[in-house]
Amino acid sequence: MRRKNILIAAVALILLSLGLMLEQFWLKVATEALIMMLLAISFSLLYGHTGLLSFGQGAYFGVGAYGFALAFTRLHLDFPLCLLVGVVSAGLWAAATGYLCVRLAGIYFAIMTVVVAQSTFFIIFQWYSLTGGDNGIQGLVPPDVISGTRGYYYFALAIVSAAFYAYYRLINSPFGLSLRCIRENMIRAKFVGIDEHKHRLKVFILSGLFAGLAGVLFAPFTRSVVPQMADWISSGKAVFMGILGGASYLLGPLVGAAAWVFLDAFVSGFTVHWPLIIGILVFVIVFFMPGGLMGLVHSYRVRAKARKRGSSGLLSDGTET
């Protein structure tokens, strides 16, 4: 337990000092990574913890961003209030569409979420009078205190840390445990009296809120929103990041999002063949490491512990210790 506290303190120190040490461009990339962590968390909640493969988290990312942008440019609300409007609208949209989605399972659930995401994209794209169509909405400049690169980094860091804490508490709560129960064995979950539909809808809305929060933070970060934020390619990114890091591990989405964003920024900084390089990397990671990056770390730790105890690493491979 003490070791854990020291670790947390160290990570916090590193993250805080990054804001002072990193040069401006990489600080922007770090901010993007922080925001994307929320999107990856929203995917992991559904896939890693409940066993629902969502290919449509982009919809709530986009709705959150547009909720913010519309409140900001049309209603001229205060900045914090705009953030709230964005998150709430994402949550409401998740509740409405989730009601239809959670009735399905497996591949059908996945395809339903794609259909929802594409429809959301389509509505945003077509509703010219409200959303401005494909040109999107620009000029979303945050208040002066956080409009600079460093200010926005700390702002995002604060919100993402709080959200991460909420996520941590959530998956360790009785509710989180019953989600994993649904994932592992639906029939047994029903036996012990878990209302599976209700639980799934709840977690769907929660993950919509996380995605919406990501969208809400992303809009003032790029100072613009576009319909593409809601389409299936944007949703695909959430899937990439979630599985890359290892969706069922606590730190998986964070590691996955950071790896993805930094790789993307790094690779597309020097070559136009980034799809090839990223494609090969993702392919190799998923093909050879089913648990993602955190799965890799986990298996190393398990083996190290086994070696310490002097037993064969093979025996305890893959089991939780």
Partner: peptide
């Protein structure tokens, strides 16, 4: 030379890269 991938987020990041680095 920098690639936007015809995506807004990437375009913005690359523009920042050009200007800042």
């Amino acid at each position: 030379k920098k690639d936007t991938k015809a995506e807004v987020a990437t375009g913005i990041r690359q523009a920042n890269d050009m200007i800042l680095r």
